[in-house]
Design a protein around this nucleic acid. Structure first.
Lengths: 308, 308
DNA sequence: GTCGATCGACAAGGCGGGCTTGTCGACGGG
DNA sequence: CCCGTCGACAAGCCCGCCTTGTCGATCGAC
């Protein structure tokens, strides 16, 4: 037989009260039960823990050592339970957030700062990914939550728009519109768009292309555009693009942002997570986003993970 | 209800096998028992630990956190049991040894070195005391073992002689016998003895006075002698004393040791301990002493603590 | 699509272990 | 000297853990 925490609780009670009878009151059992259980504990350990001298109970050296260990174990067991509850409530534990580059300028840092303040025991790990990998990362349990431009996902993946960010025109510094207070999106109809291929970033692609179509033209793409290469192309005057306003925080050299006249197109940023077994902190993140960026409807596609 | 280690063992089994059925084989119970106990564990925690998707079992984030804690707790419980056994066997734990100055030159360091080699996990604390305090220190649980010259003790205190050390004459450097290869004890019959009062060190007193009487004279004492004051008196030529041979290791300035001719008197050094609840390491110490200083009868007054 | 295999949950019953009641021997104080 | 208190022992009860039996669900095979 193995020692049990109940026996340790009994032993601690007896050791601290230095009496079976009084300890029995503390743990709400009869004195005889304590005698039996502590005897059983001693038998399983093969060690005498207490010297009963009829009239007084004394710890043996081994008992004193075991007492200290028992106290540690009991408090550790209690803390483990508390920690499990905290993790289940999303207050503690580890949350792996994957994000697309669009979120990095403002959305992600605002969110992580908010979480650090609201749930300091929650360890947030972040990782930049391509929008095309969101689904796989979530399904393979390689992340718990993703931030990406609004896109469609297969069943089993839930999402909610957490904020809308205005899109601005990104042009080279030498572009005729550079420095203008604002411009019409339609003014870019003859430009080449340094937009990533749709299969790499479908949500972003659809947002930009959709805005262009709403402005009455179909954007012409530079099929070689991808990643930082696109910035270089724009800076070199080989095209333009629409980008989130917060890019201004880390504007690449040679590029100027020009606001677009109303109705200015927006990019919807979604939180995306597993619908079936969502990480418990996801609902906290959604709450935090609703607080950071009010105005989004909170009864969206998947308002929040169903509670069990 | 509180979580029990048995439930944790079950949970670890299920989590590691990712299956109730297979885990049941590991812990030798039916699958239904595991379902019940883990459900009970989840209920007491108020936390879902496993996602059962019929066909597969997955850990929730809270379950993963609790699993790690459970493994830690279980191994800590096992180590606590092992440690208790080790303490009960005298292999580990803390042993407080009190000693009189007579033991400090050779006996104590030899013993502590021996213990450090044989029982490295046993933490030995040493403290110098007066022989008159041996009994009180032991009774008050302020030490577990004492090293002191042989003396009588009341019931409840056990002792065993661990070594006999030859006594030598300690004289001032200017004493006529200083430098002699040996001398008769009777030659000191007219000297003043720098001997501590009997009530301070009865064993040592009796050994020296007894040796003198055996040599045919009653020693004359300097009643002011005590501690280092005695050394100063001898060095100043105001008297002599008999001391253990190992004092040569830390001989005070101005003092010379002269061997005594046969039959050279000896001082018996005793190990002394509580008879009723001896520290488990005491028997190891006695074994170690018998090994370090063979020749003493090991079936003495109290051969060894009675085992329970 | 259907059948079978497998997995975990639910239900009911047996049994072992923990708890209780009752009692005794030992020690200490009045 | 007797009584009060404390812990151990003995016997019985009862709860709780485990077992057997069964079902619904899911996934693979044909």
């Amino acid at each position: 037989m193995e020692p049990e925490l109940r026996q340790m609780r009994y032993f601690v009670a007896v050791a601290e009260r230095r009496s079976f009878t009084r300890a029995a009151e503390d743990v709400y059992v009869a004195q005889q039960a304590l005698s039996q259980q502590i005897k059983a504990l001693e038998d399983t350990l093969g060690v005498r823990l207490l010297d009963r001298t009829s009239r007084r109970v004394e710890l043996t050296p081994a008992g004193a050592a075991y007492l200290a260990d028992c106290k540690r174990l009991l408090s550790a067991a209690g803390r483990a339970a508390q920690h499990a509850r905290a993790v289940a409530d999303g207050e503690a534990g580890k949350l792996r957030i994957a994000y697309t580059v669009t979120a990095v300028y403002e959305t992600l840092p605002a969110l992580t700062a908010h979480l650090a303040a609201r749930a300091p025991r929650l360890k947030v790990e972040t990782r930049e990914i391509f929008a095309s990998d969101v689904c796989r990362m979530l399904r393979d349990e390689r992340c718990d939550l993703a931030l990406a431009p609004r896109a469609g996902y297969p069943k089993g993946i839930a999402r909610r728009t957490v904020r809308r960010e205005p899109l601005m025109a990104a042009v080279g510094d030498g572009h005729p519109s550079a420095g203008a207070p604002a411009m019409e999106l339609a003014g870019l109809r003859d430009e080449t768009f340094q937009l990533w291929p749709r299969d790499m970033a479908p949500g972003y692609y659809d947002a930009v292309a959709g805005a262009c179509r709403a402005a009455g033209f179909e954007p012409v793409l530079d099929e070689t555009a991808s990643g930082s290469n696109a910035w270089a192309g724009i800076a070199a005057g080989r095209g333009v693009n629409l980008v989130v306003a917060s890019l201004a925080r880390q504007l690449p050299r040679g590029i100027t942002l020009v606001p677009l006249t109303e109705p200015a197109p927006v990019l919807r940023l979604d939180a995306v997570w597993r619908a079936e077994h969502p990480h418990p902190a996801v609902s906290r993140v959604l709450d935090g986003c609703a607080e950071l960026w009010p105005g989004e409807r909170t009864d969206g596609v998947s308002a929040r993970p169903a509670s069990p």
